[in-house]
């Protein structure tokens, strides 16, 4: 029996090692490549760890914005930092507004008894079934007509509407888990519905609000289709757009391309690892009950 347990553990650890290698191996290689000289990357067999650690491409990206056109730094590197900031602005705004607006919409769905409740819930969820590509066509057309193309605020607005159904669903299931007695006690003490939401529901839902906000941030950070279609100049490029400009340009050296990829995923990966509990619980409650 002891022998059996040992074999079991050995099999598990071999499996876990394979899973780990497959999970983070490709990304680690991207990171390692970004610190090497381009010519070292041609080595056979490949050089696994950078030696020496080369920071040139990182310098290009972080100083690119102030370096001129004749510095030899690729165009994409010079606009990267700005797009990185744009991604923060868009994803941060979407997360904040989605949680704020989503909380108010989620409360009646979780707690109030009104006609059309199921219709509202179903309608909100069903709106996500329409493929973004088919909506993109009229949205781009209208945005150009009314002069809203190439603006970050349009991106915030569009992303918001795609994230909101998800956030509302997540929050209403979280609100339902808060004991009704707490709310009743507040009502007896003379709180209005709005006060109940502000003083009881929201403070108790902090973990749920955090999950929703982080998921909204991460999903918006990675959004590409609308970021591509609604931007015309570097003023409104997000980091995914600049990464795509890097990746589809054959004239830029590989190390610059790779570095852009690495830098653009630092925020989402840090967020994901720091807030892993919130993310996993958010992902599961968001889809489990769906």
């Amino acid at each position: 029996m002891k022998q059996h347990a040992r074999i079991r553990l050995a099999v598990i650890y071999i499996g876990a090692a394979i899973v780990l290698l497959g999970t983070i191996g490709p990304f680690l290689w991207l990171v390692s490549s970004s610190f090497q000289y381009e010519r070292q990357l041609l080595n056979r067999p490949p050089q696994w760890l950078p030696n020496p650690v080369v920071l040139d491409s990182y310098r290009e990206i972080f100083e690119g914005a102030v370096l001129g056109e004749d510095s030899g730094v690729p165009y994409q590197s010079r606009i990267f930092l700005r797009s990185f900031g744009n991604s923060f602005i868009v994803a941060g705004s979407v997360a904040a507004i989605a949680v704020l607006v989503g909380s108010y919409a989620a409360y009646p769905l979780a707690r109030l008894d009104f006609r059309g409740r199921n219709v509202l819930l179903f309608g909100i969820l069903a709106s996500r079934l329409i493929p973004a590509l088919s909506l993109a066509i009229p949205i781009v057309l209208v945005a150009k007509k009314i002069g809203m193309s190439d603006r970050l605020v349009s991106l915030v607005f569009i992303n918001l509407s795609f994230i909101l159904p998800y956030v509302i669903w997540l929050l209403q299931s979280y609100f339902k888990s808060i004991p009704m007695e707490l709310e009743d006690a507040g009502r007896i003490d003379g709180c209005s519905r709005l006060q109940v939401v502000h003083k009881i529901i929201l403070p108790l839902s902090l973990p749920g609000l955090t999950s929703a906000g982080i998921l909204a941030f991460l999903l918006t950070w990675g959004e590409f289709l609308f970021a591509l279609l609604l931007s015309e100049t570097p003023a409104s490029y997000t980091s995914t757009v600049v990464v795509s400009l890097f990746a589809t340009d054959v004239d830029v050296n590989f190390v610059s391309i790779i570095t852009a990829g690495v830098v653009s995923v630092i925020p989402p990966i840090c967020f994901a690892l720091i807030f892993q509990r919130f993310i996993i619980s958010g992902l599961l409650s968001g889809s489990l009950k769906g």
């Binding site: 959004e223 653009s264 990966i269």
Partner: peptide, 13 residues
């Protein structure tokens, strides 16, 4: 969560 957090465009790169 590492691959999950990587945007599809960076994944393509």
């Amino acid at each position: 969560l590492v691959p999950w957090a990587i945007p599809s465009v960076v994944n393509a790169l």
